[in-house]
């Protein structure tokens, strides 16, 4: 394993295996379905499984693997984009966590209170903006959102789980 798949292909390999697991799950779940309802899913499922297996082979550090890679991509150069420094991984995790926090906060408290708080923190704490600049930008954006959706369109933006619970 250590030698078969070069380090730069590890991440792709994991993704391939996850996709493979998804295909296999769909195929397995099809067992109990009406013959017509499973016709396409099973067909596409096996087709995709085959493609994923080819992709996995193409990433192995074997003569055959390299040949497959060249055949499909039309060039012998390996994709280098995934060879990125480890320090970048930290900023990626940071980005994903920070955006996930926003989604969860919206789910709990709704759009209107969360957006300004999130914007302000993003600009002031994580960015290099002055407090005044952050406040003004946040206020302008909130005014646009409120005026456009709530005022002009008379549309109720999601109010959040907490508000719903309190209302009950």
């Amino acid at each position: 394993m250590e030698n078969l798949f070069p380090r730069r292909h590890r991440a792709s390999l994991v993704l391939d295996l996850l996709l493979l697991a998804f295909c296999v799950t769909i195929i397995a779940l099809s067992a109990g379905l009406d013959s017509r309802a499973k016709l396409f899913p099973v067909l596409v499922g096996w087709f995709t499984v085959a493609l994923i297996v080819i992709d996995i082979v193409a990433q192995s550090d074997t003569g055959f693997g390299r040949a497959v890679f060249t055949f499909f991509s039309g060039s012998a150069e390996a994709e280098d984009r995934e060879v990125e420094a480890r320090k970048e991984a930290r900023s990626i995790v940071h980005a994903i966590v920070w955006i996930s926090i926003f989604v969860v906060a919206v789910w709990l408290f709704g759009f209107l209170p969360v957006i300004p708080v999130y914007m302000f923190i993003s600009m002031r704490v994580f960015g290099n903006n002055s407090t005044l600049r952050s406040l003004i930008t946040t206020a302008v954006i909130m005014l646009i959102i409120w005026a456009f959706f709530e005022y002009a369109l008379d549309y109720t933006l999601y109010r959040g789980l907490v508000a719903e619970l309190i209302a009950d």
Binding site: V114, V117, I121, V162, I166, A167
Partner: peptide, 13 residues
Amino acid sequence: AAAMPLAIALAYA
């Protein structure tokens, strides 16, 4: 920051 929306939410109960 987290406490602020909570206060707003309470206001419309």
